[in-house]
């Protein structure tokens, strides 16, 4: 009776579409859609068991909070110290949003342009791959030397981390040439620009959402990492600060906020993908 084995029914949108954007194209994007109340309840139950179990174990073995705080202590710290953490959440969001916006726009434009010229694409691709695989965090000390301890080095790092991710995925999307569909548009006399906007871009959209999702999550990781390297603000800075002061409940409260932020980003792009690219089942 497992729902995954059910045969998608004809004329029932959602049966296949529910699986979500670009299923199978990226592990990050291939998460299963949650369908029934039963699944939601099961997921919450697992959380309750893990959190409750941790609480019980930490209490029974009397683990001191500086080694591992109890879930209740973390929750309490989140409530009492949220006003202290909140501004730093704001700083991190500023870095993430501006860095991601720059990286995504540049990445999308580059992907769109480069895929029009196969020769240029061949030349550029190894360098993009280099940018994707190089941890941009490694550049942060250098960027700090050049730009100081403010937003600038972090935003650059985020843009450098997110941009190539967006680009490489978007380029994969733009490269998915369906000769039949392009021939169709051409048979109506479509120009290259019309073919781009009316055929290539919509066809690439599912992969673009995958790129945006992966890029934004990489951006978040890089933002927090850059904050840990230097500068006196941001959630990453709070992590180093709280751990050096052995304020472990507060430390884990920040970790929790970061996890929630990451999941919200994932859900945002998942829903966007479902809304605008659900045709690809």
């Amino acid at each position: 009776m497992s729902e995954t084995d059910a045969i998608p029914e004809f004329n029932k949108p959602g049966a296949a579409g529910e699986v979500g954007v670009a299923a199978g194209m990226s592990a990050l994007a291939a998460g299963p859609g949650i369908r029934s109340l039963r699944e939601v309840v099961a997921i919450i139950l697992v959380a309750v068991v893990i959190i409750g179990g941790t609480q019980v174990l930490l209490t029974v073995f009397n683990v001191p909070p500086y080694i591992m705080p109890k879930p209740t202590e973390i929750g309490w710290a989140l409530v009492t110290d949220f006003h202290l953490i909140a501004p730093h959440l704001g700083y991190t969001l500023v870095e993430l949003l501006s860095g991601f916006a720059i990286g995504a726009v540049v990445g999308l434009i580059l992907a769109a342009v480069i895929t029009q010229f196969p020769f240029v694409e061949k030349i550029v691709t190894p360098y993009i791959l280099l940018l994707v695989t190089t941890p941009m965090l490694a550049l942060v000390p250098l960027l700090i030397l050049r730009f100081g301890f403010g937003y600038t080095p972090r935003i650059i790092a985020v843009a450098l981390a997110a941009g190539p991710m967006v680009m490489i995925n978007a380029a994969t999307g733009f490269r998915r040439v369906d000769r039949g569909k392009i021939a169709l548009a051409r048979s109506y006399g479509a120009s290259t620009i019309q073919i781009f906007w009316k055929v290539r871009a919509p066809m690439a959209l599912p992969m673009i959402f995958v790129g945006l999702m992966v890029g934004s999550i990489f951006g978040l990781l890089t933002a927090v990492g850059a904050e840990m390297v230097g500068g006196g603000f941001g959630l990453g800075n709070r992590l180093t600060s709280y751990s050096s002061m052995i304020q472990m409940p507060q430390f884990f409260a920040v970790v929790l906020i970061l996890s929630i932020l990451g999941i919200l980003i994932y859900v945002l792009f998942f829903l966007l993908g479902k809304k605008f690219a659900s045709w690809e089942a």
Partner: peptide
């Protein structure tokens, strides 16, 4: 513009509904 083409597969654009697919030649 005097020539209409029907391809091997239906060749409908999967991201457009039927009305938008039929509108496609006119948009171009």
């Amino acid at each position: 513009p005097e020539i209409g083409m029907v391809f091997q597969e239906a060749n409908l654009l999967p991201w457009r509904n039927l009305a938008a697919n039929i509108n496609f030649p006119f948009e171009i």
